[in-house]
């Protein structure tokens, strides 16, 4: 009755709400945890102590070099056709403006195609993207590539409609990438409301002038750590089931949802296994990644360091899409491994969470999946996730302890059973 014991302890027993309470303590104490910030390093040190005090094994920090970007003060003011202070959030890795800012006319587009059609009008202007929200993977391209595409046609800055499924005038930040050979221009996200208003104004033939000021600065890479803890396997200790979430966040809100919840249900999985006195045949390894938001920097360096042992990894798991009510897991691997995972998920019938979907989500575990290691991510109710993602609204207020209990139970049952089965998951 091991699966039932895990579920009972996590959802109904003395461990219920523990991951929520632990997360609240960390994020209320430390705040958001941007790559390169003192907050992130404080969080890593606190987690190192927490994992040791929890009695987990082989608790250690693995050094990583990570980007250091700071946003500084920033503002955007529409001056024409009327004065209007706009809420903005500069995008990670963006350069700043000159100290006096950039004042320029706006060119509004709804797509990259429209930008290319209007290329002759773009020189010297601030490109405002008012792209519709289709889905995160589709629409995020405007945040990531918006500055580069605008700079290619001679724009002096870009302002991008936040990649958000719902808005109450909330700007959403995130990472953006420059391209070699293309001038770097300042870039920030504006609210859905302002993007739509500016687009309406432009469609009426209004001339729009915006004054943008950003103090953003990029600094040399800095030292950080992936945080690791284990329950060592009893029979095949060199073989691993990796359970993970990322400890860093953006510098707004508390990073409670992205990805505090994922990191803390991963820790909770090991705590639950330990509380029940269980020791699986192979090692369950917790990794709390650093600098995921900058493109899986900590995970990339972990993979480079450990890929020589990839044949010893039975399953890599990551929760980085919220810890709301789970519906199942997403799985990447062979059909035979998928059939086994369906059997594993059938153990979660008491919670009615048994589905195995395709297409694992997880920047940090993709390196392993590409190398042929089976991967799994938590699949949950995403209906509100992208309303809060990368915004000031990502706080403990959006978290639900009961849903975290259930997510932790799913995570613990899957990781324990796969780690304890006699054979590793088949790969081809």
């Amino acid at each position: 009755d091991i699966a039932k014991a895990i579920i009972d302890l996590a959802v109904y027993g003395k461990s219920q709400n523990r991951s929520y309470d632990r997360l609240g303590l960390l994020v209320d104490t430390v705040g958001p945890r941007l790559s390169g910030s003192k907050n992130l390093e404080n969080a890593i040190q606190i987690m190192y102590q927490n994992l040791q005090q929890n009695g987990l094994e082989n608790v250690h920090l693995e050094p990583v070099k990570i980007p250091h970007w700071e946003r500084g003060e920033e503002s955007a003011m529409m001056l024409v056709p009327r004065v209007h202070k706009m809420a903005i959030l500069g995008l990670g890795s963006s350069i700043g403006t000159p100290p006096e800012g950039i004042m320029a006319e706006a060119l509004v587009v709804t797509s990259f195609d429209e930008l290319r059609r209007k290329a002759p009008e773009a020189r010297g202007k601030i490109v405002v993207y008012n792209q519709p929200y289709i889905s995160y993977p589709v629409t995020v391209q405007y945040r990531v590539r918006g500055a580069v595409e605008a700079a290619k046609v001679g724009a002096v800055a870009s302002l991008i409609r936040s990649v958000a499924s719902f808005s109450i005038y909330s700007p959403h930040t995130g990472f953006q990438e420059y391209q070699d050979g293309v001038p770097k221009i300042p870039t920030a996200c504006i609210t859905v409301e302002d993007a739509e208003m500016i687009a309406r104004m432009a469609s009426r033939g209004n001339r729009i002038v915006i004054h943008l000021k950003m103090d953003a600065k990029n600094y040399p890479d800095t030292s950080s750590f992936n945080t690791v803890a284990e329950i060592t396997g009893s029979k095949y200790p060199e073989q691993v089931v990796l359970v993970s979430g990322h400890l860093d966040s953006w510098d707004v809100g508390q990073g409670a949802m992205d990805d505090g919840g994922g990191a803390f249900i991963s820790w909770e999985a090991l705590s639950l296994i330990k509380d029940l006195g269980l020791r699986p045949k192979r090692t369950v390894r917790l990794v709390l990644w650093t600098a995921e938001e900058q493109g899986g920097i900590g995970a990339s360096q972990y993979f480079q360091l450990h890929k020589v042992n990839s044949s010893n990894y039975s399953l890599v798991m990551e929760s980085d899409s919220g810890t709301f009510l789970p519906t199942g897991i997403q799985f990447s691997g062979s059909e035979k491994a998928r059939a086994i995972m369906k059997e594993v998920m059938s153990l979660l019938k008491p919670l009615n969470i048994t589905q195995v979907f395709s297409g694992t989500e997880g920047t940090d575990i993709n390196f392993w999946i590409q190398a042929g290691v089976p991967g799994a991510s938590l699949c949950d109710d995403l209906s509100t996730y992208f309303a809060f993602h990368h915004s000031h609204g990502d706080t403990m207020t959006v978290m639900d302890p009961k849903k975290m209990n259930i997510a932790a139970a799913v995570w613990a049952v899957v990781s324990y059973v796969v780690a304890d089965m006699e054979e590793m998951l088949p790969r081809t």
Partner: peptide, 24 residues
């Protein structure tokens, strides 16, 4: 011991199913 198998037979899969069911 092979650390992971590239393939499993129907008979082996039945044993794995039974093994997993024992956790339920």
């Amino acid at each position: 011991k092979a650390i992971f198998k590239d393939d499993i037979s129907q008979e082996t899969f039945q044993k794995i199913k039974e093994e997993i069911a024992s956790y339920g």
